[in-house]
Design a protein around this nucleic acid. Structure first.
Lengths: 362, 362
DNA sequence: CTGAAAGCGCTAACAC
DNA sequence: GTGTTAGCGCTTTCAG
């Protein structure tokens, strides 16, 4: 690892000069030709700043702390981490991930992250809900992912559950379905109720009306299978909006038992948590995948923008530590969701920013 | 954040004394009562060492670098990260995760990790295969997860594919199946061939013999469905060993179409990558979940043991930075797979250590 | 314009 | 036994 000292010696100047030049603070302070010599040496010696040493003075590490619940890390949060990771990398940041399994543990992990001087926190939840950001997360910037935040003091990004329910139902309506069932979750989690409202709204707009007998909220396994069977028998649906992949599975079995084919006899739209359906049955099943990757990407981008806003022209502004692809980091406003990669979706996301404007990104 | 300086001032001693005491190097060097006063102050002021500052002297950061392929982060790698995370946390280490999408990017990410002074690397792969550890990973310790390593120079942990195939088949045999099908993967990936060998071995040991018409290797979607259907019609199996959850799905549909019930008419054992089957259909389906969490846990534990072996009595030995639950870190030999939490499985794992003894952990 | 010097928090020789 | 000193790599006054 080349150090500034080595460059200074090789160029015959002092470390301070090297520091000034390499941080682009040399304008009108260091003669142009000296600056060029320094830069040349730095490049030829392959100099990269040591972010840890730098952090000792600047208290900016270039590290983001990613906090998730233990269970969150698999399988849902994988996408969130990946998105956050991608965004962080292209902005020249690193991601330290911790997972917690309880309140006490969470406190310990947060303390540990602080000791490592993270510049900000990504607070991710396993499923969409109203989250309380721990008090110990007060100081550095915080962005909440896959949850809405109770107080509105922190930026948050979450699935737009209403839009998901609405869109799924609309697609079934557009496909010609007239008796659209909702296979929901027995647990009254946030998404369950809101997707259901989207479902009803779409039905009403289409003049189809809401038939309670077409709705069944189930858990798992045999009980769920039976519930779905009974509903099908009594209400005779021709289309299904399934709360998630597990529920879609029960409809598939019911169809197979009747010798029916999905996509011809019945239409199914399901929210696909595990991506296994989308991957293995794509041609036959219509799925809406939760935008986990996108949430992570947005959250990290937003977090970095907050960090760099706080320290207007940070020490690290030289971006020498950043990958070549790093670009200036504009604030990712709710209407400027970054295009992470092919297929980045803006749909089905809801962004909350502290000004408490809640803007659905459809 | 309390610093040693503050403690020194409050106690009326020098920082060096504080450092000695807080690192438990005071034996026979600092008077016992002074040491006690220092310790008392440290505790009452809530002192925690600043690992970054410490690393400047010791070049030990307490950070592990977790490298995975981009796609790895979801959904499979979630479990590996989680296991590594858990092990790291209880040993007082942090995890920096990076994901890469190509060789060039991998190099950049590794360089970045090195700049952050990680103490070692976890090199994780998305699916079991023979991995080449990049040359740039030469220096700090490296442990490979979810893959075997070509040269045998690095410890590695991978699923014991043979045992998986063997056990799955055995269970079907024990359940009374006589015509056991193998629904494999069309791609000739490592696991595919080795699980198949385990399958054949179990058949032969049971005196059932191998019937090629009971084997079908399929891809996805309609093509897979058709392949499975044809095999079932011509070979009339009564039990199925499915390469993964996607393949199990095709058997389920086939059963449902015939009005058959899994667990009564047919038996199915499948490897469950996504855990969705195990979660939602547990009572009816027998699944073997790949021990992702366990691989991550073992790999991180092994890595830490290598790190601490290199630096016999490291600066961080005070464990002051470690969570209360941290214990001394014994080398996790192949026969001492740590018990991460309830249900930690030793089965279906193969460990390779540089002495190149390859010991299946069954 | 440039360099010397101090210091971030901590560790490790080496004096006393 | 304890304090002094130097220095890890870097930033940031402040002299010159």
């Amino acid at each position: 690892m080349t150090t500034m000292k080595q460059i200074a010696q090789a160029t015959g100047v002092s470390v301070s000069t090297v520091s000034l030049v390499l941080n682009n603070r040399d304008k009108g302070r260091v003669k142009a030709d000296i600056a060029e010599r320094v830069r040349g040496q730095a490049k030829s010696m392959g100099y990269r700043p040591n972010p840890l040493a730098r952090s000792l003075r600047t208290s900016r590490t270039g590290i983001l702390g990613f906090i998730s619940e233990e269970v969150a890390t698999t399988p849902y949060a994988g996408g969130i981490i990946m998105g956050a990771q991608d965004a962080a990398a292209r902005l020249g940041y690193m991601l330290i991930t911790v997972s917690t399994d309880g309140v006490a543990d969470e406190g310990r992990q947060i303390a540990a992250l602080k000791r490592y001087g993270v510049d900000g926190f990504l607070y991710a939840k396993m499923y969409d809900r109203v989250a309380d950001v721990p008090g110990s997360l007060a100081e550095p910037p915080v962005v909440v992912a896959n949850a809405s935040e109770r107080t509105g003091r922190f930026p948050a990004i979450a699935p737009d559950e209403f839009a998901i329910g609405y869109d799924a139902t609309r697609r079934l309506i557009d496909a010609g379905c007239r008796r659209i069932a909702y296979i929901g979750d027995k647990d009254p989690i946030l998404a369950q109720g809101i997707r259901f409202r989207g479902y009803r709204q779409a039905l009403e707009e289409a003049g189809l009306g809401y038939d309670p007998s077409l709705t069944v909220n189930v858990g798992f396994n045999q009980e769920a299978m039976t519930g779905v069977e009974l509903m099908i028998r009594s209400a005779r649906p021709d289309g299904f909006f399934c709360f998630n992949d597990a529920r879609a599975w029960y409809v598939y079995e019911a169809a197979a038992r009747r010798g029916l084919t999905i996509g011809r006899d019945w239409s199914v739209v399901g929210v696909d948590n595990h991506r296994v359906f989308a991957e293995t049955l794509a041609p036959r099943l219509t799925t809406i995948a939760l935008p986990h990757y996108e949430m992570g990407f947005w959250a990290a981008t937003k977090l970095v923008s907050l960090i760099e806003k706080r320290t207007p022209n940070p020490a690290g502004s030289s971006r020498l530590g950043a990958p070549p692809t790093a670009h200036g980091c504009g604030d990712p406003g709710p209407d400027t969701l970054p295009t992470a990669r092919k297929g980045f979706r803006r749909r089905h996301l809801t962004v909350t920013i502290p000004a408490s404007r809640r803007i659905p990104c459809m």
